[in-house]
Simulated assay, not measured.
Amino acid sequence: MRLEGRTALVTGATSNIGRAIAEAFAAQGAHVIVSGRSAGRGNEVVEGIRARGGRADFVQADLDGSAAASQALAEEATRVLGGRIDILVNNAGIYPADSTTTTDEKTFDQVYAVNVKAPFFLTAAVAPAMVEAGGGSIINLGSWIARLGIPVGALYSSTKGAMETLTRAWAAEFGPQGVRVNAISPGVVLAAAAPGEEHPAEVMMKGTPANRMGGPEEIANAAVYLASDESAFVHGIVLDVDGGRTTVAVVAA
């Protein structure tokens, strides 16, 4: 039980990567706040965790980028967890695949609000209490397309580049006070398609050492490592869990 006795807040925890992280943390002994916009999906995740003997509660939140929304989530999660948050996972995000020329100003502002402003102000709300408590771990979610350009999703990739930069800045700011800040950069990660079916996104993982999409649980395993004492000497990194997408070129024989 690598996270026994710890408390954790995971944003965007009602599906895919966020859900897998919440489930993995609970399986390792943490009391987890599952946060998201959908109460139905959130309570489903919580019920599943509890059915397996874990501890979890749902806190509904619409992280629209306002400081007030982030502060409210931090306060409610702290209350439900009994007074402290040991681990924060900034996972919630939105991904419009629009091209640059088809992106309107409203969409631009919304994506930066959800993907950058919300975790910025949530971290600002949570980190001081972690410092006061003697330590903590903050894990941000980046993306492989923050460093490897593709012709769609420029807006989204720029927000993930911002989160990776914030990871290093926050490691410098909060690390000396006992709070470790790191990031995970996933490759293409989706739940497995039905047998005999291929997801359209799979083509983006062709020509990698893994030669497949990743599963949410593979990102969750990395999050458990970064949240646990095993990574006590790890600060300010972006951990690529992407099947080799950004670092390796496989040349066909």
Rank of each mutant, 00 (worst) to 15 (best):
L9N: 07
Q177R: 14
G149Q: 04
I139L: 14
K160M: 02
G244Y: 08
R212Q: 14
W170Y: 13
S35G: 08
A169E: 12
W144T: 08
G214C: 12
V238Q: 00
I49T: 07
N140L: 13
I49F: 10
S66H: 05
L122S: 09
Q28Y: 10
A193N: 09
V10T: 11
A222Y: 01
G48C: 08
E197P: 00
R19S: 09
G142I: 02
L122Q: 03
D98S: 13
V45F: 05
E217V: 14
A201G: 07
S38F: 09
E202A: 15
P209G: 12
S228A: 14
L141K: 10
V234N: 02
V188Q: 04
L166H: 08
Q110K: 12
G187C: 12
G83R: 06
M163S: 05
A220P: 07
E132F: 12
A222H: 03
A146C: 03
P195A: 10
A220Q: 07
G12N: 07
N182A: 06
T159S: 15
G187I: 04
V111H: 02
N182I: 08
F174H: 13
L3N: 04
S143G: 08
G40M: 11
G136E: 07
L63H: 02
A67Y: 03
G82E: 07
D57L: 11
A72Y: 09
R147V: 15
G135P: 01
G243M: 02
A61S: 13
F233Y: 15
A194V: 09
T100G: 03
D62S: 13
R19L: 07
T165F: 03
L3G: 06
A56M: 05
A146W: 01
S70Y: 11
D86V: 07
R6W: 03
I138C: 04
A210Y: 04
A20Y: 05
I33G: 00
M163E: 07
A127V: 14
A13I: 12
R168P: 00
T246G: 09
A92F: 06
V250L: 11
V116L: 00
A171I: 07
S66G: 14
G236Q: 04
I87K: 08
